[in-house]
Amino acid sequence: MTSQAMSGFWSLWISVITLGVIAFCWWLLYANRKTDKVPAANGEVETTGHAADGIEEYDNPLPRWWFIMFVITIVFGLVYLALYPGLGNYKGLLGWTSTGQWQDEMARAEERYAPIFQQYAQIDIRTLASDPAAMQVADRLYQNNCAVCHGSSARGAYGFPNLTDGNWLYGGDPEVIRDSIIFGRNGLMPAWVDMLGERGVDTMTHYVLGLSGLEHDAAKAEEAAPMYQAICSACHGVDGQGSAAMGLDSIGAPNLTANSWMYVQPGQSVYDSVAFTLRHGRNGLMPAQARYLDYGVELPNNLRSLSAQEKAELLPKVHLVTAYIYSLNQGK
């Protein structure tokens, strides 16, 4: 992280004004020292000439403790300016930065909470998923990191999968969920309109609707069946059961028989959505979350080949969120 330095002029400008104001304060204090007016013979004391409601203002000196407080504030100001960055580009003797303070606070929080997270890291994901206290902590992690895309109830949104319906793009096994979170996912559906042609897109859409048991034109579906087996079944499976069901963890081709559609916009028909997908393709990206959830952890190159236990200890917050996502799908 780099901080934007000021140009020499502005740095000087600020320093001169800051120190100038302090010098002015000191001068003001000194200039207002008591020049005690000697009372005239008749006992009249000269006032400042200010009068309000007939009350005149004397020119009395400051009480000593008050004067000392002014001196203290001036000294404090100078010491502060020497220790902390306040004068333009001057860094201060303590080398304090707001970034540094934030890092310190993070480190302190880490020190305080790490033992709790490490304790959870020792517990198997399936067991952890049924521990209400752990899930409360995990819920907070989820709401802060994941809810922005998947929704506070994890039921997904347009373009973001529902995480509660037991229907997985990449598989719902705890270790697979963990990997999805750590490394992220990139699901790519190519555009098929060149291969299928306009009529092919239409008939194939009917075929896909049929797989999920939705209302469709059976004749058109039948027409598309050979094409489906030739092209689509490679990823979506011969029965449309999706890549996860075939044990292909990293493709992410959805199950077409589950009547679960990630790209249906409100008010849009499933037909329109599927036809759009076939014509233009889709590109879904889930960013790798390890660096955000477990902020500051050094990720080793062999992360993929670590054992489940090693991953849990290295990335305890990912471990908790994994258990949370897993818990949402119990009984589905």
Binding site: L29, Y30, R33, K34, T35, D36, K37, V38, P39, V45, Y58, D59, N60, P61, L62, P63, R64, W65, W66, F67, I68
Partner: peptide, 16 residues
């Protein structure tokens, strides 16, 4: 003593 009549001249503050 009234501070206005009591103190010597040129002081920085009023003594308590």
């Amino acid at each position: 003593k009234s501070p206005t009549t009591g103190g010597p001249q040129g002081e920085l503050y009023a003594k308590r």
